[in-house]
Design a protein around this nucleic acid. Structure first.
Lengths: 226, 226
DNA sequence: CTATTGCATATTGGATCCAATATACAATAT
DNA sequence: ATATTGTATATTGGATCCAATATGCAATAG
């Protein structure tokens, strides 16, 4: 009796609220670049798309505002945040500062399953030509490698940092062979982790991030219009 | 004509929304320790206290959740987040890692006005015996010294880190002469900044934070009950 | 007496409605 | 023609109401 029932029932209580669904959807739209910096987000429109009232939409917007992805002005509404070049520099600086620390700590007690997951994300995304999905695999790869650090606050900070620059990265990657280069670097980082060489992994992550920043700035210099 | 009118009118458009007021109030209650870890926050009660409906209360709670100060469970409501010892260690670790970097960068182009502000917060709070207000002065002192780094994302991260541990610090400070020690260290840090010695300021900030962590852990070890 | 079930109450999630403000545009004055 | 003013519309902020779920307690079966 009861065999297997509990596992099947586990996710029953955690059905996502409308607010959660809309938050995730808007976040995806922003970091994928479908919603661009400066775009205003109309509550009524989002509500109609999801067949809900504006209440959960507004709650989602408050969360996005707390994260910095949108800016709210009273009686004017939410606008997708834009980043100055200085702010882009800052985001990459904190990533290049935090992620080496975290990966080193994570490698110190990394689980085989974690390495297997990371390898899967690494290989699966290498087949993926769609830059849209690339961002998701990229994020999963990074987060997976960091997860055994058991540093949730660092992880949240890194996640929010990546979220802020993701749309910029993506716009650049599709045009500059950045994806093949990133894949190669990911593989090397993964191998360092598999060998338990935290220092090497940390240094490579640092270079990986700084290289991405350099490519992005070069790209932005050549495309000032967009 | 028009003389002085514009300045007087500036803040007219920015009257805070109910949601903002309630967010700030709840945040204050949590970081001051009046709302303790594990306490549940009843929407209806907050709404009645502020003479508003539950809508702005819920929006405020969503922001607090995004910040990590409360946790929401569907149909159960918001509960003030608690921190394990490991999480406390993590918060202090990231503070000790980020704040030296930021103060060094800030000192490099710090403005006289900033130093004057910091000195004021330093001296005014030294008279302050009330641990409640102490936290506010402490935060202002730290944030002021960091502001000329022009690193808003770092600052936001540091602010949220401090918010998470503030109530724990305060509980400890009042009983262990921590306030007089902190005041002395603040003064020394301020002097290093005034002399333009960023490296020294960075090192002292690091020790200041690690010392606070050590005191807190000792305090928590002796008071496992609370 | 204990465990389960059913029900009443409390609380949160969401929908609908109204108020406050912004925005676009026509009307008017200079 | 240009700048100002008035007005209609669009949009957001908030209040009130209803639905969905949780929680506490009494009733009942064993």
């Amino acid at each position: 009796m009861y065999e297997g029932l509990e596992e099947r029932a586990i996710d029953l209580g955690k059905t996502a609220s409308s607010s959660d669904v809309i938050y995730n959807a808007l976040r995806d739209e922003i970091i994928s670049g479908h919603l661009k910096a400066g775009d205003s987000i109309r509550q009524e429109y989002i509500a109609k798309v999801f067949n809900v009232s504006r209440i959960p939409v507004r709650e989602a917007l408050k969360r996005l505002e707390a994260q910095g992805l949108v800016q709210n002005e009273r009686y004017k509404g939410a606008v997708v945040s834009s980043l100055s070049n200085a702010e882009i520099e800052e985001i990459f600086a904190i990533r290049a500062y935090l992620e080496p620390l975290v990966i080193k700590r994570s490698v110190e007690n990394i689980k085989p399953q974690t390495l297997a997951d990371a390898r899967r994300y690494c290989e699966e995304f290498s087949d993926e030509e769609d830059a849209g999905k690339w961002g998701e695999w990229n994020r999963l790869f990074h987060e997976t490698l960091y997860q055994d650090a058991n540093y949730p606050f660092h992880l949240k900070t890194i996640r929010e940092a990546i979220d802020r620059v993701d749309s910029y990265i993506r716009a650049q990657l599709v045009l500059t062979h950045g994806m093949t280069r990133a894949r190669k670097e990911h593989l090397e980082i993964l191998e360092a982790c598999e060998q338990g060489d935290g220092d090497r992994a940390a240094e490579m992550i640092r270079q990986h991030i700084q290289g991405a920043y350099a490519s992005l700035m070069e790209y932005l210099k050549e495309n000032k219009d967009s």
